[in-house]
Design a protein around this nucleic acid. Structure first.
Lengths: 331, 331
DNA sequence: GTGAAAGCGCTAACAG
DNA sequence: CTGTTAGCGCTTTCAC
């Protein structure tokens, strides 16, 4: 350590002033600080982390960073983690299990202190790997009883969406979901939809968006058929905002107008939904609260070393935002 | 190393099989691999990186991860870097110089092999720090002669935007920019706008979007005034798509219709622009080519160790995508 | 208040 | 083909 020589002290003293640990006389500290400045010395985080046996980095696993809802969460996480003196390592899984496993492995090799799972597949091996390495994890924005998690009450949220539609006078309401929504979340939202439909004695109709997401040319026609044909659908409760927005696209491509001919409601509350041209009615999630509480749970375990304590679960309430993609059905 | 004991070989042999280096007999390799499997051994990347004196991680600096254009770039970078066996460390700078400097410092302490700068401020200190640490950098999506960079020809792109408007019959065309566009890019696009206007002998009009971005209640009125008042603007060439989309919002909030009353063209080619409700005419950037070429330049230096070689610059051509936010001005 | 010594878990020559 | 030997740059007791 060159700084040590220049300031005429030992490595340990330099280390002490850098870490603000131990007692160092003001005079010595000054000298060391000056040497650091003069030499443009930059501590080596790799060496520090090796001896500490952990990098102060938190891993963030996200299914699709291109989904603006998740990009927003990642950004918040990066900022908040950084405020807590942690760096962030973002991994995109593209919703593929193999990638998810590989990325977790990478994070573990790098000795992250903890990992935040956005859009977690629920895979057991991933959880076991984490637990085996004593690395705490928190699932944010979807539920999992095996780990700490903070999420919105998806079930209640989707029920509220249906109630909103019902109150408007809709009876033939379909639920649209697909691979864009992570499994457990999809199930919870579907359950919320079905419960609300059942409550009103209405038959549930579940649709998958995957065909038109893939650009299937017949999709537009089939969608139109669903509305104008025997099914006579008058409203769609989509699994998330991205799907809702694309659904509107497809519907209008088929000559249907939203909300005049058919209503659409989303879930998440992405910014774009607020655009006047879109005006998406939606069930909004409190993003900042999700990330703040999530990081809180994680860092709590990191600092407390209580990796083994039973999982805690924070459930937040989503909020209905009425805009102009929903209206009373035509007479 | 426990794996060494179990398989009855030395640490180095284990290291050799893991790295696939040196010659190891098949029998030995088998045994080692089995032990690794049995013990659930996971190599410690921190230790490896320490002795190699570099983490095989590339740093990515981004101004605003919530901007879908950049989120898309980051995702592509993460995937491509990962394919090349590098992990990614994403840093959000919020466009603040102090944060940018601090984040680069962090990346340097972690001994990243290189850094990709999206939305680079152009700050000299940042560049010096990088150069001083012998860490190569590449600027992606904006220009900087001091570093490797790959970007679209912003000047030509914006000129093309103006030409498109001109061909449609517009003469009173304003350029709208603001803090959402990073400095050097903003300058290049503004220059392209001015050049095209001058070419046709038209007076340039530069507007800042910052007032209505901040939710200034008077902005809508002022905007309306610009169109219906003496200025008589009939078209806006926005600095990027996000601004264009918000501009449409503001315009319509003031009772103006796009494109009937006024035309708007964007820049970037974000996905949302393709939505039928938005239909934004824009100058599109080839995202995948930006990231692929950018990473190529970076890894080239990383592998070649040619940190000092003169900067290379790749300029890509943007492409006009005509949708329905532009039309001929009213008679 | 400060220093000496012993590693963290791995790689990279260099011997054998 | 495999083992031995030095560290990488830092933290952390434990003496002084």
């Amino acid at each position: 350590m060159d700084v040590a020589n220049l300031s005429g002290v030992s490595k340990s003293t330099v280390s002490n002033v850098i870490r603000g640990a131990g007692r160092v006389s003001d005079a010595t500290r000054r000298r060391v600080l000056d040497s650091i400045e003069a030499l443009g010395y930059r501590p080596n985080a790799l060496a520090r982390d090796l001896v500490r046996r952990r990098a102060n980095t938190v891993g963030v696993m996200v299914g699709d960073l291109a989904n603006t809802f998740y990009a927003g969460l990642v950004k918040l996480l990066e900022v908040e983690a950084s405020d807590a003196a942690y760096t962030t390592m973002v991994c995109n899984t593209d919703g593929e299990l193999a990638l998810e496993r590989a990325r977790v492995e990478t994070l573990l090799e790098r000795a992250v202190v903890g990992v935040v799972l956005l859009q977690f597949s629920g895979d057991r091996m991933v959880l076991d790997a984490l637990r085996g390495a004593q690395v705490p994890a928190v699932v944010v924005s979807c539920h999992d009883e095996r780990v700490d998690c903070v999420a919105v009450d998806d079930r209640a949220g989707m029920s509220a969406a249906v109630e909103h539609l019902y109150d408007l006078g809709h009876r033939a309401i379909a639920h649209v979901s697909g691979h864009l929504v992570e499994d457990s979340t999809r199930a919870a939202r579907a359950a919320g939809y079905e419960a609300a439909m059942r409550k009103h004695g209405l038959p549930p109709r579940l649709l998958s968006a995957d065909d038109w997401e893939n650009g299937d040319p017949g999709a537009v026609r089939r969608l139109h058929e669903l509305v104008s044909g025997n099914a006579g659908l008058t409203a769609f409760a989509a699994g998330n905002d991205v799907m809702a927005v694309r659904l509107i696209d497809q519907l209008e491509a088929g000559g249907l107008r939203v909300p005049e001919d058919v209503s659409v409601i989303g879930f998440d509350g992405i910014e774009l939904g607020a655009h006047s041209r879109i005006g998406l009615t939606t069930i909004s999630q409190p993003r900042e609260e999700l990330t703040t509480r999530g990081l809180e749970l994680l860092l709590d375990r990191v600092r407390g070393g209580s990796v083994a304590a039973p999982p805690r679960c924070v459930t937040l309430e989503p909020r209905l935002i009425v805009r102009h993609s929903t209206a009373a059905p035509r007479a």
